[in-house]
Amino acid sequence: MQGDRMTMLRLFLTAALATAAAVPAKARNPQFQGADPHAMFIGGDLWIFPTGGPGGAWEADRFFAFSSRDLKTWEKRGELIRRDQIAWIGDDGAPAHFLWAPGVATRNGKYYLYYSVGPQNPTPSRIGVAVADRPAGPYRDSGKPLITGGNGFEAIDPMVFADPRSGKTYLYAGGSAGATLRVWELRPDMIGTAREVKVEQPPHFTEGAFVHERNGVYYLSYSHGRWNGPDYSVHYATAASPTGPWRYRGAILTSDARHQGPGHHSIVRARNGEWLIVYHRWERPAGPGPFAGERQIAIDVLRYGADGTILPVRMTDGDAPTLAGRRR
């Protein structure tokens, strides 16, 4: 009997640990705990590369990836890279370091993970890049920072956009207290810069730049406000090129009565032609910040007007957007 009880206990503990480690399956917004989601479709699955993720508080020492075929059930796809695998991370002499706001790009069958490395003060923040043969990694760091901040520029929130018309690839980065956006053209190897491209500063820009193209129009969207306050929101501008000049178009994602501080987003197009915005938000009623706790990732449909403008996004609860449907 004692042996039977021990066997049952082991089975119970094994099942409990497996359940605790699994990504919770949610058929509704919010999707799962996390922040700063970079999203991209790989095959028929939507992959999200966030800061943090399901299963506990943000420790800022590693990145994970999650994928879903139905935007309801999420699979944890593995550990991408850890802080202790970045050899140069301690070169600035800071006593502690943090990783956040990843961005992912692909070229010639390789995957490239761009990420922010702090602290931002008193030492400058930096952006690193790591390479993998598949989206789930493991990723191998390039061996040195790609961009280093300083002189009022914070090297954070990297995003890479491949221009379908010119074939050039651009890195967008910067923001927060300095609220400065900078853009570089990347070399073909994707781990070095060819040159910096001077760009004007978009109105209301704070951080989290994202670029996508639709019908020949380039959309630069970005977060405005303080990350843990009710004014955090997503604004956008348009241009005829991926580097501007930009025409400011307004806000598309703002706090409402039940969700606060939506931002740091990605915009992706599903296989059915539907456009989606993937972002984080605070699940709480309207009120003053600063907010505490964990942010949640949500997915909503992004729609365009007949003139190409982006319509304001209504944050939803309940069933997630479906991948079946008509083109927009």
Rank of each mutant, 00 (worst) to 15 (best):
E283R: 14
A270S: 12
R295A: 06
R281A: 07
D300E: 08
V268H: 07
L276C: 04
Q296P: 05
R271A: 14
I297L: 09
L276R: 00
Y279L: 02
E283T: 13
H280T: 10
P288R: 14
G289M: 10
A286Q: 12
E283P: 04
F291C: 06
G287Q: 07
V278D: 04
I297A: 03
E294M: 11
R271G: 13
V301L: 06
D300V: 07
V301M: 02
P285C: 12
I297N: 02
W282E: 04
I297D: 02
R303C: 01
N272H: 11
D300T: 10
I299H: 04
P285N: 12
E283G: 05
P290R: 15
A286S: 15
R303M: 01
I277G: 02
L302C: 04
I267H: 02
I267T: 08
V278E: 03
E283M: 11
V278S: 06
R295W: 13
A292I: 15
R284D: 08
L302I: 00
L276V: 01
G293D: 09
I277W: 02
D300G: 08
S266T: 09
E294P: 05
G289D: 07
G293K: 09
F291K: 07
A270M: 06
W282L: 06
I297R: 02
E274N: 08
R269K: 15
R281Q: 10
G287L: 07
G293I: 06
R269Q: 14
S266N: 09
H280K: 10
I277L: 08
I299N: 01
V301T: 10
R295F: 13
L276K: 00
A286I: 08
F291E: 03
L276S: 03
L302R: 01
Q296I: 07
I299A: 06
A286L: 10
P285Y: 15
N272V: 05
W275K: 00
Q296Y: 15
V301S: 06
Y279W: 11
G287H: 11
A292Q: 13
E283F: 08
G289K: 12
E274S: 10
R271W: 05
G287V: 09
G273N: 03
R284S: 12
L276F: 10
N272E: 07
E283K: 14
V268L: 03
R303Y: 01
A298N: 03
W282I: 06
P288C: 04
P290I: 13
R281H: 14
W275A: 00
A298Q: 04
I267F: 05
A298R: 00
A286T: 13
V268R: 01
P290N: 12
L302T: 00
W282N: 06
W275T: 01
G273E: 01
I267Q: 02
P290T: 15
G293S: 11
W282A: 04
N272D: 09
R295L: 10
A298Y: 03
V268C: 07
A286N: 11
R284L: 13
W275V: 01
